[in-house]
């Protein structure tokens, strides 16, 4: 009851009870399964254990440390990948010759899953920060490049005609027409690439890292600490959700004119 009444105060769009019904049912099922010991505790830990593990990790400062490391890699990788992706995508959308030269290779590379580059990148850069930031940047690059490319190509010719009728100079054309026309799609590309970057980062940390949420989970697995593994799973999900939600909010703010 308490959880529901506090949730109602938060700015959640639909009615809070409906939004929380499924998560609460899952939680109840989880409690039931662990209480009745239908599954061995080594395989499925109880929610209480998980909460205890959170407290334990938090007090030791480990959780904060891992989170900080993961988020730092995420943002460094995401921003560098996104900036290059945006520049590349917009240029490819604007210039036919650039498209002719780069599109085939671009489309081929796009098909390779980011994690498939992990072994190669480890050989080149070792398991230090560089490798993780590069893999995240690679994951961020493609959706942003694609979003930038599509959005520039998709600007209706009509808009340019109106600009021409009023003899709009180049800079106002970019600022008042090209950017607003492309922002919604570019933001969607950025949002997709941010959640993809996060997933790839956790996967990379699982494979090779000395810190980070992924490494914490891998360490928990080796130590048979299922509670820590589950904490990692939850945190990964929560962060991914928060990043996506935050970006959607940003999208709705920056493209308010689209709301009908």
């Amino acid at each position: 009851m308490n959880a529901i009444s506090t949730a109602k105060k938060l700015p959640i769009p639909a009615d809070a009870l409906g939004l929380l019904a499924v998560p609460l049912a899952m939680l109840a099922l989880w409690v039931l399964v662990t209480r009745a010991q239908w599954v061995p505790e080594q395989l499925l830990v109880s929610p209480t254990k998980v909460i205890e593990a959170v407290g334990e990790l938090w007090e030791a400062g480990e959780l904060q440390g891992h989170l900080q490391n993961s988020l730092r890699r995420l943002f460094l990788g995401f921003f560098s990948g996104a900036i290059f992706g945006l520049i590349f995508g917009v240029l490819m959308g604007l210039f036919k010759s650039m498209e002719d030269y780069c599109a085939p290779l671009f489309n081929a590379f796009r098909q390779i899953p980011s994690i498939a580059f992990i072994p190669m990148l480890i050989l080149i850069f070792g398991i230090d920060e560089t490798f993780k930031i590069i893999i995240v940047a690679k994951a961020a690059f493609f959706p942003v490049a694609l979003g930038g490319y599509d959005s520039v190509r998709g600007i209706p010719k009509n808009y340019f005609e109106v600009a021409k009728v009023y003899q709009c100079p180049l800079w106002p054309l970019i600022k008042q027409v090209v950017i607003p026309a492309t922002v919604p799609q570019i933001l969607t590309g950025l949002r997709l690439s941010l959640s993809r970057s996060w997933m790839v980062l956790v996967a990379a940390e699982l494979m090779a890292a000395d810190s980070g949420i992924g490494q914490m989970m891998e360490w928990g697995r080796q130590m048979f600490r299922m509670d820590i593994v589950v904490v990692g799973v939850f945190i990964t999900g929560l962060i991914g959700f928060a990043l996506d939600y935050g970006f959607k909010w940003l999208e709705s703010r920056m493209a308010r004119w689209k709301m009908g």
């Binding site: 009023y166 100079p169 008042q176 607003p180 689209k258």
Partner: peptide, 28 residues
């Protein structure tokens, strides 16, 4: 700007308010 045109589809920019759309004619 000594020739104006109104198209069948209004061709207002959807991200601009009425004011901004009209002011766009003075962009140059």
């Amino acid at each position: 700007t000594d020739r104006g045109i109104v198209f069948q589809d209004h061709r207002l920019f959807p991200w601009m308010t009425v004011w901004e759309n009209i002011a766009f004619a003075l962009v140059n």
